[in-house]
Design a protein around this nucleic acid. Structure first.
Lengths: 221, 221
DNA sequence: CGGCCGTCGACACCCGGTTGACACCGGCCG
DNA sequence: CGGCCGGTGTCAACCGGGTGTCGACGGCCG
């Protein structure tokens, strides 16, 4: 885990740096806001430990820039006085956590580590087939990087096809899985929805029809 | 956060219930061990406030069952006498914390909240998504640096959405987590509260609606 | 004790996307 | 050549979700 420590009080900065290194982190230490910005431009950090009161560029400003440009970097802000007002301000700037001085070193370690853990993306259970992908949790689907705007039925249909791999799914099964109600077996709604889904998926065609069999997504035509 | 209060002294039980609700928690109250077991089978609670001396099934027994079956639920045990021996016993049964009667109500709140935080994960205390941030401990929330003045329900709803990351949260799940079991499934309170929350969050919209799916906060529209 | 205010949940209503039926077309295959 | 399966165009009804409003409840303060 890469950590940047921004703290103008040199003794404290050094202590934090060596302490975090002893915990197995890769730590850079800088003493003012300007140096912080230079380092932040050059390197991707997982966590920034940021003193609020800095000479030169103020900690708040560093924080603001960081939030705007590097959404993936987590910020632990150190504030001098433990006043509620100050904490509130730091929060409003987009810091992910704050720690009032003086603090216990073990607490700093725990919080930096917690932030680092959050930095790594959680497991994404995403269905993919060719250039089509679908995230059931976020309820979004993409084709070739472009986001698809799907209605609920279209989404469920696509999800069902993707979940079936390259198997041919009979229309009757789709009806049963997507329209879980008492499905009128003579309905034309599956083919209608397939049509609209195809239109939104665009070219080249990726939902193939197997005559008398059903539908299959991706793979060979 | 969902809390179950198990306390046979009805006046105290009621008081604890309303007090915790005022703190924004979804609270169910039962008066004996049998009812507790029924509720615990039916619902997933984050924290159980458990009186040790219960008519019917004893608190210790409830605790034992709970530890065995629901590792993710935290237990705060209330005991009459504050003897060390009792405390040791309670903890030995797997309770996560212990509070001797009589107790100060603010301490109860603090401990329940601490347990609730621990229940999810050792997540950093501040939830952030885009330019919205929220501190569950201090009960404050911000958008773009401006403090939001939220009612308890609005706060709990926002907290729940933020804690769910970019997952789509079904309205039914929100109802279950933010409101308590008196929840009539046909209620319109979720959409009403969502509306008021949106109004307070202001522009640009950050709570997205997924038709037939639920609500999702932040990320792409 | 009484009135004021914030909260919260219920209706009633509105709106626009979604959906599914119908009619028709076109091509593959017997 | 004709039947049949599946694609297409169109359209009206529907439904899910947003909005305005009101009344109940409870806390707080005079």
């Amino acid at each position: 885990m890469r950590v940047l420590v921004v703290e103008d009080f040199a003794v404290l900065a050094r202590a934090i740096g060596t302490g975090l290194r002893r915990e197995g982190m890769a730590v850079d230490v800088v003493l003012d806001g300007d140096a912080a910005l230079v380092h932040l431009d050059a390197t991707r950090y997982d966590v920034v430990v940021l003193d609020r009161d800095l000479p030169g560029v103020h900690g708040d400003e560093v924080c603001r820039r960081l939030v705007a440009e590097r959404a993936e970097t987590r910020i632990l802000m150190l504030t001098a006085a433990g006043s509620v007002a100050e904490r509130v301000e730091g929060l409003g700037l987009g810091a992910d956590d704050y720690l009032p001085k003086p603090f216990d070193f073990s607490e700093l370690v725990a919080r930096v580590r917690a932030l680092g853990r959050r930095a790594v993306a959680p497991l994404p259970p995403i269905l993919t087939r060719g250039d089509v992908s679908l995230d059931p949790n976020r309820r979004v689907a993409f084709r070739a990087g472009r986001r698809l705007d799907l209605s609920p039925k279209e989404f469920a249909l696509l999800e069902c096809l993707l979940a079936s791999g390259d198997r041919v799914v009979p229309a009757e099964e789709l009806l049963e899985r997507v329209w879980d109600e008492a499905a009128d077996p003579f309905t034309t709604t599956v083919k209608t929805t397939i049509r609209r889904l195809r239109a939104k998926l665009g070219a080249p065609p990726i939902i193939h029809t197997v005559r008398e069999g059903g539908y299959r997504i991706g793979g060979a035509p």
